[in-house]
Design a protein around this nucleic acid. Sequence first.
DNA 1: TTAAAATATCACCATTGGGTGATGAGTAAA
DNA 2: TTTACTCATCACCCAATGGTGATATTTTAA
Lengths: 210, 210
Amino acid sequence: MPEKTTKPREKSKEKSKQAFMEAVGEILKTKGHEALKVNDIAAMAGLSKKLIYNYFGGTEQLLDEYLHSQDFWTKLNHEELIGETTNGGREITKQVLADQFDFVANHMAFQKILLWQLSEERPSLRKMIEDQEATGELLFNGISDPYFGEKATDFRAIMAILISGIYYLNLFTKVNGSMFCGIDLNTPEGESKIREALNFLVDKTYEGLK
Amino acid sequence: MPEKTTKPREKSKEKSKQAFMEAVGEILKTKGHEALKVNDIAAMAGLSKKLIYNYFGGTEQLLDEYLHSQDFWTKLNHEELIGETTNGGREITKQVLADQFDFVANHMAFQKILLWQLSEERPSLRKMIEDQEATGELLFNGISDPYFGEKATDFRAIMAILISGIYYLNLFTKVNGSMFCGIDLNTPEGESKIREALNFLVDKTYEGLK
DNA sequence: TTAAAATATCACCATTGGGTGATGAGTAAA
DNA sequence: TTTACTCATCACCCAATGGTGATATTTTAA
């Protein structure tokens, strides 16, 4: 008597592909991009690694597909912002920086991708960077450039520093759980101080640059 | 007739250890910390990997010893700065930021170590971070804290953002060779704009914070 | 000159990681 | 029930990597 093989076959190809994508996200969040090995991804997905080759062509393509599926810059909804530019966008600028801060502070996957961008050259990472630049260009072009005129580039340089600061500060303190310049970003007070400093610098920029 | 073994044996233990340390530095600079494997380090040093185990105990200890040998914060000579604090250290602050900018921009090994600090937890990396904090604390304590009084923490938060910005901006543009907020740090113009922005922000901070 | 210690190499093993061919097991149409 | 197709696993190969024991060579000192 042949024993009934109790292997329910509910998984379709799409479900499996999705499982791999989620496994990539999970490993990325918990261990970073360096830990994205075929064997581990397959184990995390609970499927055979052969399927990665069958469905995606290889790990590289799977990672590319994962990265393309992550569309951070449209998630950061800046749509409602444009249209009501008062004061040359001073409040909008503060809001954008605060949004960036919240986003990077709360999205582990985003932090790991920022780190990935600093560690490796890869077309799909490059594409994310280009999308980011394009989103920023939209804001600069539409809001700050007209306001600051010939000082527009100086404003961009300042924003470059502030956004970079937000990124690095979050990466650094989340990994090391330690102070930076005596500020502990892992405490509400430290976080608050950074937010205030950002607002202060934006204010002074709008007051002093033009 | 036994052929004369033309293997000059001029290498002593210390020379070999030094060769391994230099190999670590070389690989770190060219390929980053992820590429620091025993076999590769030994090949770069032109010696047997067994010696790494004999002399250091293993790759981990070798890396630790390398990191301990790198003393960046004393290389950044801030000694002559302290003592002549005018304007609450406004010019000194500008100078320190400019020095940091130069240093990270020109020292590939330092860039890679910054990245390493963001990627991995390791006691010897932690020690570097603590040294950095201690050096910074010295400057804050001696110069800005007395001047800004109860606003001292706000000043520190601003400095945290600016230094973080310097770090990330350099890491990002050197790896990706691309723009950030429309600024191309790989051109003299872009670099100049960032330097000016830093000075502007320091000036506005000293003017507006107190 | 010879014995011991230091220096260095080599061959080898175990583990991990990337990648593939053979095959099984369900499903659906002929 | 055959046939063919899709989804999935397994066993296996090969390269890279970490790590070690046996051994050879040079230096040093008795």
